[in-house]
Nucleic acid binder design. Structure first.
Length: 878
RNA sequence: GGAUCUGUAGCUCAGUUGGUUAGAGCGUUCGCUUCACACGCGAGAGGUCGUUGGUUCGAGUCCAAUCAGAUCCACCA
């Protein structure tokens, strides 16, 4: 529920001397962004007030964009949707905590810096404090400057700051009501300290641990990657069929897409129920080419339908191999190195002379070349059975890589995420039920992911530009690191860089010396930092007073593509660090599709640049398009929708100009019984009754995060207001029916305009505030959300407006059918309708006559009849 | 293979617990300088709600099946 009205800082609750409206001759949208943005900055209306309680705060954990490259329409879309909610909550009296940070840590930044400056990081290079990057990057990557890690990081920081400035300007232009004082960068000292602090706490609580194990490995980037970063891509492959041989000389055929792994084979496996292979279980067979004896094993994961039904287990071809290797307790015969090449030394498990000669053909080769070599050997020696059968199959890639992942054994750090622990998995599923998902069905994506986890979260990365893992290892007398007992820094020392600083209690001179220490060289997965955005933005452990007033946050907005990464990782961290959910609501935005219904993305080259549309249609128009789409719905990039938004914003300016031109001031707004007395005319009271419903419904939908519905309701009321109501009351507003009738119109116009500006303010912040400033003091964005209850005392019969509209439409149609101008006078006409409708018509008869230029209207009651206009006599056209 | 979403006018979409004749905007057709707005105004045409069956007095809405499209997960023998 919203806080009490007392906390609202609305400026208009007691008007002393009403402001005289000042309306421009030709209202226009052009230039509003610049003008109002500087006014808002000056008036500090989006500043978070730290003197506050948790109940007064509405906190938003916004996605920190990667500021590399350019912003695209997808950003405008989803960030607008969040801003609309932020503005609504602010108007409801909440102290809105709306920070926006930058995700400048990680591979995208590294890559951008490499390409932008033409440099590459070579950790063996010494630091050069005077280093200047080349004016122009060298065309050939081989000619790029090799620079030290420190120099590389400095360039990353320089470029990200420049990029972030451009983004901030664009987001400001977009009208985001972000408090820019609350900004952060995922690579800055505070973020690094927060990441390291969280890591240390996870180590101490047993939620983070190190382990030597087979992991997915990208040979291009030479780093381990996590399950969440995988992408399956369809790739052509081929089944190669060749036999192993039993002791009796019987051939056992296997079919494989990775024949090059034959020297890494540690066993064959078939399903326990597979009668074809049951006789072989427990016996050994000999591999072709390399002559290695391996046992035939049984395991339920073996699929009798695939290939020949019996598979080679190799260390390691894929994660299924890892499962078999672990559960069947097989030896390790790894050959593919971190560079993606086969070991240069012939392994000791290949003992036959022929086998060793064959291995020579693969030694040092890439996976690709080794495959060709093995196939060639199999072919030459007549072992290959038939030709390889081409197939298309899914292969795992790192989402940013372009070579298939290998599985390599290495020491890595992990965080427990339920992937190996059913209890924790249940806890995280329960957390998922604690938060409200908008739309609700998105929760199943989360549950789907949690239930499908097959291991803990691998958080160490063998990269340069990232948050260092804050640990050191003691070296024993032989110089071997003690990984089981890492040396941890004290929290008040954070952030630390173990590569540059000695371990606590050691001199730097003992680095790498037996009896001394080594620093951990790896950095944390960027998600290990991004998963802490609530803690980073809320200044966890730096300003806990602030942190406890914003955490758990009220809202996490984000895209559905990163539920498995960002959303899930944030839940994992909050669960183990705070035993809490990180937020109570999550709003999942859809994607922007191009007109061909494809997802817009940089790699597809179908991205529209935001500046162009902002320039062409204006910010309000673009925001209208974004706010017309419901949460979670993928939306077509629709220029037409922006045109409609632009039209609405312009209409709002012009309709306001009209109302304010009718002598309307803020003093006419109905606020209490005294003001209510002025509204004497049934038509005016009908309008306000309608308005009351609109306010009530829009509020309800906004509270349910359905801003699109709220907009639609407000918008259709607005058009009814301008097209019917304003046309009906023009004559009266000009004073044609006396002062009392005019005062009634003024009150209705003032009250409606006041409410409409507030209702549209979250979506069209520029046009609404422009109008607001014509006749009010301060900003509409510092004003309170309208309350339906306040209109109760002036609400009349809402049906009346519709009845009158129908009659007006009928009279207009008569002129349209007669093909005369709408100005043409109606000498007489007959209106047939049910008695109730006629009573409405009668109550507004003079307005109808004025609007339709009708001299005489005959009202005929007929129950059950539709409203119809007949017997129309028109005057001669002028 | 598991899960989720979508299918309503030429186009983009709305349709809240089932309830009269299914709505909006764009586009289209006809007409209009009407003193807030030609970046405007008025009027019209246009839909057997993907298909089939069921529940019900009554289904765009609920259930089942089916077709089509999209997304996530799994899938390297």
């Amino acid at each position: 529920m919203a806080p009490m009205a007392e906390t609202l800082k609305d400026t208009d609750t007691s008007v002393q001397t009403p402001k005289t409206p000042e309306v421009p001759e030709k209202p226009a949208l052009e230039g509003l962004e610049e003008k109002l943005n500087s006014a808002w900055a000056q008036e500090k209306i989006y500043h978070f007030n730290p003197e506050t309680t948790r109940e007064q705060v509405y906190s938003i954990d916004t996605p920190p964009p990667t500021a590399s490259g350019s912003l695209h329409v997808g950003h405008m879309f989803s960030y607008t949707q969040t801003d609309v909610m932020a503005r609504f909550k602010r108007m409801c009296g909440y102290n809105v905590f709306y920070p926006l940070g930058w995700d400048d840590n990680g591979l995208p930044t590294e890559r951008r810096v490499q390409n932008y400056y033409g440099v590459r990081c070579d950790p063996s290079q010494p630091y050069d404090p005077n280093y200047q990057p080349p004016e122009k990057p060298a065309k050939n990557q081989r000619d790029w400057d090799a620079i030290s890690r420190q120099n590389f990081i400095e360039l990353c920081e320089k470029l990200t700051v420049e990029d972030e400035k451009i983004f901030e300007d664009l987001f400001t232009r977009l009208g985001l009501s972000v408090d820019w004082r609350q900004t952060y960068r995922t690579i800055d000292d505070d973020s690094r300290a927060a990441s390291q602090r969280a890591f240390l706490r996870d180590v101490n609580s047993g939620n983070a641990y190190t382990s030597e194990a087979p992991t997915l490995w990208d040979i291009t980037f030479r780093t381990a990657v996590a399950q969440a970063e995988l992408e399956a891509k369809e790739r052509p492959g081929a089944y190669h069929r060749y036999p192993f041989t039993t002791a009796e000389g019987k051939k056992v055929f296997i079919e494989t897409t990775r024949p090059e792994l034959l020297p890494s084979c540690v066993a064959l496996v078939a399903h326990p129920d597979d009668e074809r292979y049951q006789p072989l279980f427990g016996k050994t067979v000999t591999s072709p080419l390399f002559g290695v004896e391996v046992e035939v094993k049984a395991h339920r994961l073996a699929d009798p339908e695939k290939g020949s039904g019996i598979a080679m287990i190799c260390t390691f071809g894929d994660m299924t191999d890892v499962t078999w290797w672990r559960e069947l307790q097989l030896p390790t015969r790894a050959l593919i190195g971190r560079d993606g090449r086969f070991a240069r030394e012939t392994p000791e498990w290949i003992t036959t002379e022929e086998g060793r000669a064959n291995y020579e053909q693969l030694a040092g080769k890439t996976v690709h070349s080794a495959k060709e070599a093995v196939v060639e050997l199999l072919r030459e020696q007549g072992i290959l059975d038939g030709e390889p059968k081409p197939i298309t199959h899914a292969v795992h890639f790192y989402e940013k890589g372009d070579k298939p992942l290998e599985v390599v054994t290495s020491r890595q750090w992990y965080i427990r995420n339920g992937g190996r622990d059913a209890d924790r998995r249940e806890e995280l599923l329960a957390r998922g039920k604690e938060i409200d998902w908008h739309p609700g069905f998105m929760r199943s994506r989360y549950e789907n992911w949690v239930e499908g986890l097959n291991g803990d979260w691998l958080i160490s990365r063998q990269r340069f530009f990232g948050v260092p893992i804050p640990v050191w290892y003691r070296l024993d007398e032989d110089g071997n690191p003690d990984y089981e007992n890492p040396i941890l820094p004290a929290e008040d020392q954070l952030p630390v860089d173990p590569a540059a600083q000695p371990a606590p209690g050691f001199e730097e001179s003992l680095r790498g010396v037996p009896g001394g220490f080594v620093g951990e060289e790896d950095v944390l997965d960027t998600w290990a930092t991004s998963s802490l955005t609530p803690q980073i933005a809320g200044q966890w452990e730096r300003n806990n007073e602030l942190f406890t007033t914003v955490f758990p946050y009220d809202l996490r907005p984000q895209g559905h593509d990163i539920i498995r990464t960002w959303l899930f990782a944030t839940m994992v961290r909050a669960h183990s660090l705070h035993e809490s959910v990180p937020w109570t609501n999550t709003a999942i935005s859809g994607w922007i599709l191009d007109p061909d219904r494809k997802k817009m993305s940089k790699s597809k080259g179908n991205v529209v640049v935001p500046n162009d549309v902002l320039e062409q249609f204006g910010t309000d128009a673009v925001r209208y398009w974004a706010a017309s789409a419901r949460l979670g719905v993928d939306t077509a990039y629709e220029v037409a929708q922006m045109k409609i938004g632009r039209r609405l914003a312009i209409k709002l300016l012009n309709a306001s100009k009209f109302a304010l031109g009718m002598g309307v001031t803020e003093a006419h707004i109905v606020r209490d019984d005294a003001g209510a007395a002025a509204v004497t005319q049934p038509l005016d009271r009908a309008l306000l009754a309608e308005l009351k419903t609109v306010v009530a419904q829009a509020t309800e939908h906004f509270e349910n995060y359905d801003y699109a519905r709220a907009l639609q309701i407000t918008e259709s009321f607005f058009w009814q207001f301008t097209d019917d109501y304003v046309e009906l009351v023009k004559d009266r507003a000009y004073g044609g029916h006396g002062e009392e009738a005019q005062a009634s119109v003024r009150a209705a116009l003032a009250t409606t305009l006041d409410a409409l500006l507030r209702l549209f303010a979250p979506i069209l912040p520029f046009a609404t505030d422009e109008v607001w400033r014509w006749w009010r003091t301060g900003s509409v964005h510092a004003a309170a959300w309208p309350q339906a209850q306040a209109l109760e005392i002036v609400a009349g019969e809402p049906q009346l407006l519709d009845s009158v509209g129908e009659v007006l439409s009928g009279l207009r149609r008569a002129k349209s059918d007669a093909k005369v101008k709408q100005r043409t006078e109606i000498l007489s006409a007959r209106i047939t309708a049910p008695a109730v409708t006629l009573s409405h018509v009668e109550a507004a008869l003079s307005d109808i006559k004025a609007a339709a230029r009708a001299q005489s209207l005959e009202l005929v009651a007929q129950e059950g009849a539709e409203v119809s206009v007949s017997e129309v006599t028109l005057a001669e056209e002028a």
